[in-house]
């Protein structure tokens, strides 16, 4: 027996008397279910004010967050996917690319730009999960290569923001080789003694984890981001039992020694600037000697 009983059956408020809420005015956190206004959520950098859940954001959101005044100068914008394998599953790869491009307004799963961060020149490559799960094909590989070339040209540090389900299946062997290509290019960046910060965001898995994302001079992650080689579902199938709490999330990965630090989105810019300043100071001293 409940404490309160409904006297009248059904809903008695007439449609005319109901309060209207326009779409998109409120944001409900998928994790803690707290409800705040979209505007407030946006000013919180898409981080839940209650539980600190970091919502996935786009490449351009990161540019806005990290570059000083403008969104930076984007380059290599004209590079798009070809279809050398003429890949076809339930859909042609070319058609898939076209429809995702129209839907998202993106060219592919990564954007690269240079600009200034706290006054210093920086090159940023930011992945975008909306484009076929942020998957890495030839375009992602080539754009990272261009970003590294640009960093070497400008003698600037590089930040790669990973957010990817892994290699893009529709480019098969070619996408696998992008793991090798990006790692080869990182050798050149290292040769030029330029710092590389890898920022791992939710989710970073598969071939991206097994190449550039794990190869930062400093590996930073946003809180509670899934970071894995094999995804949780695959691991669960392999071992045939439930996974421990927090398995493969930032905090877990840090505890196992594969991250340098976890940084809240609001502190990313200042923390990375601080680190880069320290790296630069040491370099300047050496030059004076």
């Amino acid at each position: 027996m409940g404490w309160f009983t409904r006297k009248k059956e059904g809903i008695s408020t007439s449609t005319a008397d109901k309060k209207e809420t326009p779409e998109g005015l409120w944001y409900k956190c998928p994790k803690c279910k707290a409800v705040i206004t979209t505007e407030e959520h946006k000013s919180n950098l898409h981080v839940c004010a209650v539980c600190n859940h970091h919502e996935r954001i786009s490449a351009s959101d990161y540019f806005e967050l990290l570059f000083d005044s403008t969104k930076g100068t984007e380059f290599a914008r004209g590079i798009t996917a070809a279809d050398p394998l003429e890949f076809k599953d339930t859909k042609n790869y070319v058609d898939r690319i076209k429809s995702v491009q129209e839907k998202t307004g993106l060219k592919d799963a990564i954007r690269v730009a240079h600009g200034k961060m706290d006054g210093d020149v920086i090159v940023i490559a930011a992945m975008d999960f909306r484009f076929i799960g942020g998957s890495m094909g030839s375009v992602v590989g080539e754009k990272i290569a261009r970003a590294i070339d640009k960093a070497i040209e400008l003698e600037a540090p590089l930040i790669i923001i990973s957010k990817s389900g892994g290699a893009r299946m529709m480019e098969a062997g070619l996408s696998l080789m992008q793991m090798a290509k990006t790692s080869a290019k990182l050798n050149q960046l290292s040769e030029a003694k330029l710092p590389y910060i890898s920022l791992l965001t939710d989710p970073t898995t598969g071939g991206v984890t097994a190449s550039f994302a794990m190869l930062g001079d400093v590996n930073i992650a946003e809180p509670n981001a899934l970071i894995a080689f094999a995804g949780p579902r695959v691991v669960k199938e392999t071992i045939g039992r439930d996974l421990p709490e927090g398995f493969q999330y930032s905090e877990f990965v840090l505890e196992h020694g594969f991250l340098d630090l976890i940084v809240d989105r609001k502190d990313l810019k200042s923390k990375m600037s601080q680190l880069l300043r320290m790296l630069k100071l040491e370099k300047a001293q050496k030059e004076e000697e």
Binding site: A210, F229, I239
Partner: peptide
């Protein structure tokens, strides 16, 4: 590469990278 629990704990992705 083996997709097991310990493999992930010990950094399968990092080892390959």
């Amino acid at each position: 590469a083996f997709p097991g629990l310990e493999a992930e704990e010990r950094g399968q992705g990092e080892a390959i990278a």
